[in-house]
Amino acid sequence: MEENKIRCEEFTGLFVVRNCENKPTIVCYKCKKNVCNIHAFKANKIVSQNSGLQVYKKKNAILCISCFVEFDARLTNDIELYSKDRSVWRRKMINRFHEEYPYMVFMADDYGSLFDSSSTVFLHDDSDDGSYFDS
């Protein structure tokens, strides 16, 4: 039964990329992807001169984050980080990182339960013991 559970079709993470675990609540008006509330954005909040966008704005469409970022013409400097738009900022920056840097990325799902975060227990003390590299 778990195998057939419908999940949000967006992803999270920068280095270890995971499929979003949330339950989808909305279908993206443009790409028809099932997405959760966190990855859904109102098209009428997009700042852009793109004429193709008007269709979505007029219909008060809801878009997935990927489609939203595709249309959104805002510079990263203009996005307030203490808001839901933080996800938009992050996605734009990750896209830039992909383009400008030799980038290490892999899908957690490709490694079975190795990166299963639900079973992860952190027992190590996260204070810096300073025993390495001290000169």
Partner: peptide, 19 residues
């Protein structure tokens, strides 16, 4: 640091805290 923490936010465990 707002920018840095936003970028790594999704790579942290849920509710994990940054010292």
């Amino acid at each position: 640091f707002s920018a840095l923490f936003t970028l790594i936010e999704e790579d942290l465990q849920l509710d994990s805290r940054i010292a």
